[in-house]
């Protein structure tokens, strides 16, 4: 008993170190979810770029190794205008968007698509 008390008097358990990582700000931000499925949370630019590129890469006629963020669909990837239409429609589905026909017709490169989707308030 005396031995136990003597040991306990000398042991110091670092409580703060074990608790600290669980309550950092970044961890909390991950847990706070918006109440509605759209509109409240704006997409980060990196996420938009990553998802746009993954959509373009998974297009069957595209060589995935050629796809970068500043690639032009028809000039650089060798697609035709109807493939362009299909890619824009795939992007619309990926980001749950509805782009008016005239504006969708103007989107012909990765850069334009990223800009348009990043600036769209409803992209999700």
């Amino acid at each position: 008993m005396a031995l136990r008390a003597a040991i306990l008097r000398h042991i110091r358990v670092p409580v703060l170190q074990t608790l600290a990582p669980a309550s950092t700000a970044s961890n909390w931000q991950r847990w706070i979810r918006p109440m509605s499925s759209h509109g409240d949370d704006h997409l980060q630019k990196e996420e938009v770029i990553e998802r746009v590129l993954s959509v373009v890469k998974s297009f069957p006629k595209v060589d995935p190794s050629q796809v970068t963020a500043d690639v032009h669909f028809q000039k650089d990837l060798g697609l035709d205008s109807l493939d362009n239409v299909e890619i824009v429609m795939a992007l619309e589905e990926e980001f749950k968007l509805e782009i008016p026909d005239k504006e969708a017709d103007k989107i012909d490169s990765c850069n334009l698509a990223i800009e348009y989707i990043y600036n769209h308030p409803m992209a999700g």
């Binding site: 109807l82 239409v85 026909d101 005239k102 017709d105």
Partner: peptide, 14 residues
């Protein structure tokens, strides 16, 4: 004409 075809294809695909 090309623009008309693109928009027609887009609408038809949707």
């Amino acid at each position: 004409q090309k623009e008309r075809v693109r928009i027609l294809y887009r609408r038809a695909l949707k």
